[in-house]
Design a protein around this nucleic acid. Sequence first.
DNA 1: TATTGTTATACTCTATAACTATA
DNA 2: TATAGTTATAGAGTATAACAATA
Lengths: 166, 166
Amino acid sequence: MAIELDDDATAKRQVNLGPLATMLSFALRRAQAVVGEDFQRSFAVEEIRPMLFSIMLVLKHNPGLRQSLASAALGIKRTNFVPLFDELQERGLAERRQVAGDRRAAALFLTEAGLTLLSRLEHVSAHSEAHFTARLGAEGRAQLLGLLHRLGDTAFDVDTSEAQAG
Amino acid sequence: MAIELDDDATAKRQVNLGPLATMLSFALRRAQAVVGEDFQRSFAVEEIRPMLFSIMLVLKHNPGLRQSLASAALGIKRTNFVPLFDELQERGLAERRQVAGDRRAAALFLTEAGLTLLSRLEHVSAHSEAHFTARLGAEGRAQLLGLLHRLGDTAFDVDTSEAQAG
DNA sequence: TATTGTTATACTCTATAACTATA
DNA sequence: TATAGTTATAGAGTATAACAATA
């Protein structure tokens, strides 16, 4: 069950990655792949993808949330949120309820089954996170989170009028 | 041209992300999205996607590389490498050459046009990297790279026999 | 007019299985 | 039998345009 990751390691030793080795975008993609694989494999038992887990988690902490807010907070488009939530609903893990005062909006909730499953998933997630914390150390992990948030949270505060060719 | 990122920021202020706020997988996904968008927008002028750029970069530093090694080093499957390289070849940016001694293998090279375009892309990339370095500071950036490599490079050194339910 | 949710659609990246031609 | 490259195909995430119902 070696998952053929030896190949990658061997190749990296033989191949000169050049500037890629110090590019943020590349390092992020690789790290995300490794962490993502671990999560995906962990959640596979419950047939839950990371994205569904994220949605459930947000709903647990914000019962009655609107779809627009939920998707914006998770960084996905309203339009892509719909089929994801449909899946949770069809599986009996979450539900849409009507909102008094705005007949367009839907309030989102986890069901009992959803909450039950979620608490199992949270254990799995904690286990996976612990795995990586072990590799980075507690401070390393905290540092990494801080740096990632500094990259991700701000979005852009720079204007896009920099179309000057080099 | 506000790219509707205000919505995300507003939503995040209103929504309690709970454990997601301190999960590596989530922070990585968000950071990768921001950095990836910036790269994608930068490269859009030349109609080059980040993945094509990575391939070109590796080829520049390893002329004559075999496909298997190239794809393994970049962390993508041989099978997915093929159409990507086909695209480079059809656009006259790279080419496959026969290898003396092994008629199965192909040696990959950038063309003159490929090298010319690549040097332009490298400027664009440097600009984008600088943008994020400015946000993190030089040490912050170095720290981040180190931590990401510690996550990504090792792949797994842990066995998969941990299927114990909690 | 603007907003909430929705459908339809397409593109990119990723993943598996099976094939060919060599070795 | 194994390896290098290839084809076909499917899944998952993300993007845009356009619509209905409601505000």
